[in-house]
C-alpha cells in the first residue's frame, strides 16, 4: 500500500447542477458534514433553458481528500458534472471585488493613484469616498485590498472565484 500523501493542495472545482431548491445546501452540507474546507464558493444559474447552475468551489486538502471531495460531489443526485479545473489542464480564474475607501487629502490621491496602477475602475465617488471595482486573480485583489488598508478602506465585497478551462472544450 502506498504511503498516504500528506501534502495539502488547493484546487478549483467546477460543478454543474440542476438549478433546484436545496442544491446549494446539499453541496455546502457535504463540505461541512464531512469536514472539508471551502475557501471560496460561487453559484449562479448559467443555462436558463435547461435549468442548470454552475458552482465554482475552491477547496484544499491532501490528494486523497480531494479525490474524495470530487467523488462525493459526483454522487449527489442533482449533480451533472464535476471537473477539477486545477488538475485537468489549465484554466482561467477571476474574481471581482468592490472596495470602498473613505478619506480626504493626500490619502485620497494616493488611493486613486494605486487604483490606476491596478486598473481598478471607480464606480461610485463623492468628495470623501471612492468605490473601486476590480477584476483579477484573487491574489491580485488581496494585494490591492492590503494597499488600501492604510488609505481609508472601510468596506470590501468580493464574489469569490469563478473559473473556466482554457481551450475549445466545454465543461
Amino acid at each position: 500500500m502506498a504511503p498516504m500523501d500528506t501534502n495539502i493542495e488547493s484546487r478549483t472545482i467546477a460543478v454543474l447542477v440542476d438549478n433546484e431548491p436545496g442544491v446549494l445546501a446539499r453541496v455546502i452540507g457535504l463540505f461541512s458534514g464531512r469536514g472539508y474546507n471551502i475557501e471560496s464558493l460561487t453559484v449562479t444559474e448559467v443555462d436558463v433553458a435547461h435549468g442548470l447552475s454552475r458552482i465554482t468551489v475552491v477547496t484544499s486538502g491532501t490528494a486523497q481528500i480531494l479525490e474524495q471531495i470530487k467523488a462525493q460531489l459526483g454522487r449527489l443526485v442533482p449533480v451533472h458534472r464535476v471537473r477539477d479545473l486545477t488538475k485537468e489542464g489549465t484554466s482561467v480564474e477571476r474574481e471581482l471585488a468592490l472596495i470602498k475607501v473613505a478619506g480626504a487629502g493626500e490619502k485620497r490621491v494616493e488611493a486613486l493613484r494605486i487604483a490606476d496602477i491596478f486598473r481598478a475602475r471607480v464606480v461610485d465617488s463623492s468628495h470623501d469616498h471612492f468605490v473601486f471595482e476590480m477584476t483579477g486573480k484573487s491574489d491580485k485583489l488581496d494585494v490591492f485590498v492590503d494597499l488600501m488598508q492604510p488609505l481609508g478602506l472601510i468596506d470590501v465585497s468580493r464574489t469569490g472565484v469563478v473559473a473556466i478551462s482554457r481551450g475549445a472544450k466545454a465543461l
Binding site: 500500500m1 467523488a71 459526483g74 454522487r75
Partner: peptide
C-alpha cells in the same frame, strides 16, 4: 493487509480510496 494487491468493486465511486488505498 500490508502486502496485498487490492481489487475493489463498488457501485459508489466515493467508496474507492476513502479509507484504504
Amino acid at each position: 493487509s500490508p502486502d496485498s494487491k487490492k481489487i475493489h468493486i463498488d457501485i459508489d465511486a466515493s467508496s474507492i480510496n476513502k479509507n484504504v488505498m
